[in-house]
């Protein structure tokens, strides 16, 4: 139960962190490899403290990790939560796509029997 609760909060935190464009850009940059904070800050017209704030949000959401080994403490993507969020969206899409496939079939059946019943009222156009 506690475990599941953590997951709920994790997913919420992931989506909340992803809601900001700068943070998404940072994640996209990190997708091509770990990098230093100053390098990360370069493309943005933003102060270092502002960038640090975004990094903290991402770190709290578990989306990035900061290295301890090197002095420049590189940032890297922590993939698990992102993957969970992405799987979650994908699963939902799948659900609807399959239901819509079925709906298409059902409509065909429905319209076939409808047109038999009341041919003159059939407004279907091809």
């Amino acid at each position: 139960m506690v475990q599941q609760h953590t997951s709920t909060e994790q997913l919420n935190a992931t989506f909340a962190a992803l809601a900001d464009p700068t943070r998404r850009a940072i994640l996209a940059r990190l997708a091509s490899g770990e990098t230093s904070v100053s390098e990360l800050a370069e493309p943005f017209e933003m102060s270092m403290p502002a960038i640090s704030k975004h990094l903290k949000v991402l770190q709290r959401a578990g989306l990035i990790e900061r290295g301890r080994e090197a002095q420049w403490r590189p940032c890297r993507l922590a993939a698990r939560p992102l993957k969970d969020a992405s799987d979650w969206l994908e699963h939902y899409r799948q659900f609807w796509e399959e239901a819509f496939d079925r709906l298409e079939d059902y409509l065909r059946e429905l319209q076939k029997s409808e047109s038999k019943k009341k041919e003159h009222k059939n407004g279907r156009k091809k």
Binding site: R102, L103, L110
Partner: peptide, 9 residues
């Protein structure tokens, strides 16, 4: 109607 299609395959 919903019973005919709602939900995955």
């Amino acid at each position: 109607h919903l019973e005919h299609w709602w939900g995955p395959k």
